[in-house]
Simulated assay, not measured.
Amino acid sequence: MSLLTGTVVSAARLADVSKTYPGAASPVLHHVSMDFPAKSMTAVMGPSGSGKSTLMHCAAGLDRPDSGRVLLGELDLTSCDEQALTSLRRHRIGFVFQQFNLLPMLTVYENVALPLQLAGRPPQRATVLEALDRVGLADVAGRRPAQLSGGQQQRVAVARTVATRPEVVFADEPTGSLDRATGRRIIALLRALVDEDGTTVVMVTHDPVAAAAADRVYYLVDGRVAETLAGPTVERITAWLTRWEG
């Protein structure tokens, strides 16, 4: 929020985005426009096949829309070549997915340090350990992913993102494979990125409790924005889902 103008500053935005995959009978995304305000958390919900993951991939520069614009700040990602998109993903964008995507042959420390190395930023030991300490895992830095629980592995994935200090974090079903208590801890860590670091978080989720941690929730149906909910609560989201999916 700008103190001078009172206007909302967008960290990322989709403007009239459409996407159809080859052989598909209809668009996966159909003229979707969404705004992701800076220093806030936005949740995206919808039934299976509604286009949530495709939307996330387009917003993060992992996939290209057929039409429309995808903005990161003032930069139009649809005008960037693959080299530029790779650089953006390494320096300005972070990811947390349902699958932890940790490299099994590397230690926890090495997994967290790897994105910094790929970005050409020699990892400082203090930076890596601080990220691990933030998710409560500094004491397992020397272990390998197979020695950790699923919840611990997802916390390492969050630490990996924290270490790079991205502007925007895209989280695709980050609690989908976790038990309820562990999932709540992951959502709290993502919320802390917003409240303590000023990071923007965009999260796809099916969980009303996770979505209630967001500042705004979009609901997708058949590749279109069906409704938007500001100031979400578990009760409001549950009623909303019952109306749409019941």
Rank of each mutant, 00 (worst) to 15 (best):
M56L: 15
L106D: 13
V169W: 03
P174Y: 07
L220Y: 05
A113D: 12
A59N: 00
A24V: 15
G51R: 03
G73T: 01
G231Y: 02
R64M: 13
Q153W: 01
A126N: 13
V202D: 06
N111R: 06
D35M: 01
I187A: 12
C80W: 05
L178I: 02
S33L: 00
A60N: 07
L189F: 10
A230M: 06
T7F: 08
D197I: 05
R13A: 07
I237S: 05
G94I: 11
C58M: 03
G23H: 08
S149V: 08
D66N: 07
E196A: 14
A214W: 01
A15D: 04
A59D: 00
E74F: 05
V234E: 06
R143N: 12
F36I: 03
A226C: 00
D195G: 09
R121Q: 15
R144A: 03
V128Q: 12
D172E: 09
A60S: 13
L137Q: 08
V108T: 13
A11P: 02
P122I: 07
E82Y: 07
R224S: 01
D35W: 02
D76Y: 02
G61W: 06
G136T: 12
L85D: 08
S10D: 07
A24C: 14
Q147K: 10
V158D: 04
T5F: 14
L118H: 14
I186H: 05
R121E: 15
A43R: 09
L148K: 00
T42F: 07
P122K: 14
S149L: 10
A24P: 09
T164G: 10
D63E: 14
D207Y: 01
R180Q: 01
T86G: 07
A211V: 02
F100C: 09
Y21A: 12
F100Y: 14
D139W: 11
L102Y: 08
N111D: 06
E227Y: 03
H91P: 12
R185M: 04
R243C: 11
T5P: 14
L189W: 10
A192C: 06
T200E: 04
D16A: 02
E110H: 07
T205W: 02
I237Q: 02
G49K: 07
T200Y: 08
V201F: 08
L62Q: 05
T182Y: 09
L137I: 10
T175C: 11
Q124K: 15
L189D: 05
K52Y: 03
E130S: 15
V32T: 03
